[in-house]
Amino acid sequence: MSSGQRGTAGGASPVTRRIGVVTFPGSLDDRDAAHAIQLGGGEAVALWHGDTELSGVDAVVLPGGFSYGDYLRAGAIARFSPMVGAVVDAARDGLPVLGICNGFQVLCEAGLLPGALSRNVGLHFVCRDQRLRMENTSTAWTSEYTPGADVIIPVKHGEGRYIVRPATLAQLEYDGLVVARYLGGNPNGSVADIAGVCNAGGTVVGLMPHPEHAVEPLTGPGSDGLAMFRPVVSGIFTG
């Protein structure tokens, strides 16, 4: 366990959860997300973009990639897919949802999270291991981290600059809805170094970095990202 992670209270045996992973035309990281869920002890359930049935899952991951080719703008078409419509309805009823990179873009386009993701400052695609500081550790997806934890999770995106109106930013900061911030250099020009945000209930989280690529040392910079998947898998989030 990383120094930036904390275990379940009282050593209780985890309760296995079924976590849906949506695949869009152009998804790249759906299998990686499913692998991360399985490493965390959950059952990954494949969900297709054209379907409307969530198959009784306990949470949903919208993975990274280029949904529908990122035509118009990233996430703009995926937002209207039948599956995202079902996810939006379920999220408003409290279903935990994690949007990673392109999934974060979809969540903003769908109105589940405030703000938008725009072209990186400098207009270059960025791919690197990135230091983050975990700000909000009381969400459905981040409750296994310790507050202020310094973790390393890769980024790989061309449209990752988080932008939001000043009044909304002030409200996000006041309400503690910034989930993570970039450390050691902002890779995309996001306002206030924001790498991820959540909704007021802590059930919906959008994150530009890729925790599914930091779940085992063999294929990533370490395992700091694995803690992102364990809370919903173990059922330790109480809201």
Rank of each mutant, 00 (worst) to 15 (best):
N102H: 09
N102Q: 12
N102C: 11
G103F: 05
G103N: 13
F104W: 03
F104P: 03
Q105T: 10
Q105K: 03
Q105E: 11
V106Q: 04
V106N: 02
L107A: 03
L107P: 14
L107K: 05
L107D: 11
C108G: 09
C108W: 06
C108E: 03
A110V: 10
A110R: 08
G111E: 04
G111H: 07
G111S: 13
L112R: 12
L112K: 01
L112E: 04
L113F: 02
L113E: 07
P114H: 02
G115E: 07
A116N: 08
A116H: 00
A116L: 12
L117F: 05
L117M: 05
L117A: 08
S118D: 10
R119V: 11
R119W: 10
R119N: 08
N120D: 10
N120C: 04
V121P: 01
V121W: 07
G122M: 15
L123F: 12
H124T: 14
F125Q: 02
F125H: 13
F125L: 14
V126W: 12
V126G: 06
C127M: 14
R128W: 05
R128E: 12
D129K: 12
D129A: 12
Q130T: 14
R131L: 13
L132I: 09
L132K: 02
R133F: 00
M134H: 02
N136C: 09
T137W: 00
T137D: 05
S138I: 06
T139I: 01
T139N: 06
T139L: 02
T139R: 08
A140T: 14
W141R: 07
W141D: 01
W141H: 02
W141S: 04
T142L: 02
T142E: 02
T146H: 11
T146G: 14
P147E: 03
P147I: 03
P147L: 01
G148E: 10
G148W: 00
A149L: 11
A149Q: 05
D150P: 04
D150V: 13
D150C: 04
V151K: 03
I153H: 09
I153K: 11
I153E: 05
P154T: 09
P154Q: 01
P154N: 07
P154A: 01
V155G: 13
V155D: 10
K156C: 13
K156L: 13
K156T: 13
H157C: 11
E159Y: 00
G160K: 00
R161S: 02
R161F: 00
R161E: 00
Y162C: 05
I163C: 14
I163L: 12
I163F: 03
I163V: 15
I163D: 10
R165G: 11
P166D: 04
P166Q: 07
P166K: 04
